[in-house]
Amino acid sequence: MAEKARKTDRRTLYTQRAIKDALLDILHEKRFDKVTVSDVCRRAEITRATFYLHYKNLAEVLDEILEEAMADDDSALSGQEAYLWLEHLPTCQRVSSNPKYLPFFKDPSITNYLVERLFQNEVPLRVPEVMQQTGLDELRACLLLRFAVYGSFAVNAELGWKKDALWRSMQDVLTIYTTAGMRAVGEQLGGVQAS
């Protein structure tokens, strides 16, 4: 009970925000695997004891920031990115549209961790959609979603996460490809699963 009360305390929330902002700020300068708790403490202007009062390690801070980023992803998109198919943009594109989180996407030391977290975030909503559109069972729908999320992440990483004309063109191409592919899977398999 005391733990829950501490988490809602205004000072606690302020300190946690300072820690998260410090980590985000540092990630503009160096990779996550090179950041230390001391770096974050100096930037947040807190002691190590204060840091450990709120978090066990930097990975826990990273997790909390990612949770916030994924919760905020739709609000991060600008008007010029408001395509009709916006809701079908992969999480990586929605989250990376907010410059605050962009250092995560450019940091090779956390790429595998990040893309897997984004994928897991999409599973509850997208797997049932894929199953409905294709007739695939849950396992195959999940694997197809993994292909789409990891593939989109790779393409966008290759493009440097820039939202330029090439990015817009590729989003259109990938959307057409994915939509036609889902339709073709549904038509050709007709709900019949290979064993």
Rank of each mutant, 00 (worst) to 15 (best):
E3K: 05
A5W: 01
K7Y: 05
R10Q: 07
L13S: 03
Y14R: 12
T15Y: 01
T15D: 09
Q16W: 04
Q16C: 10
A18C: 14
K20V: 01
K20R: 15
I26V: 08
H28N: 15
K30S: 01
R31L: 00
F32P: 05
D33S: 14
D33W: 03
K34F: 00
D39E: 02
D39L: 02
V40A: 04
I46K: 06
T47S: 15
T47Q: 08
A49S: 12
F51C: 13
H54Q: 12
Y55D: 13
D63P: 04
D63R: 15
E64A: 14
L66V: 08
E68P: 04
M70P: 07
M70H: 04
A76W: 03
Q80L: 02
Y83R: 03
L86M: 06
H88S: 02
P90M: 09
C92Q: 02
N98A: 12
L102E: 14
L102C: 12
F104M: 11
K106T: 15
D107I: 02
P108E: 11
P108Q: 08
I110E: 03
L114H: 07
E116W: 07
E116M: 08
E116D: 11
E116Q: 12
R117G: 00
Q120Y: 09
Q120H: 14
N121M: 06
N121A: 10
L125G: 04
M131C: 14
M131I: 04
M131Y: 09
Q133M: 10
C142T: 15
L144N: 10
L145V: 04
F147D: 15
V149T: 13
Y150H: 11
F153Y: 15
A157M: 08
E158S: 10
L159K: 02
L159H: 02
L159R: 05
K162S: 06
R168M: 00
Q171K: 03
Q171G: 01
D172P: 01
D172Q: 08
V173L: 09
I176K: 13
T178N: 13
T179N: 14
G181C: 03
R183T: 12
A184G: 06
G186F: 10
G190W: 15
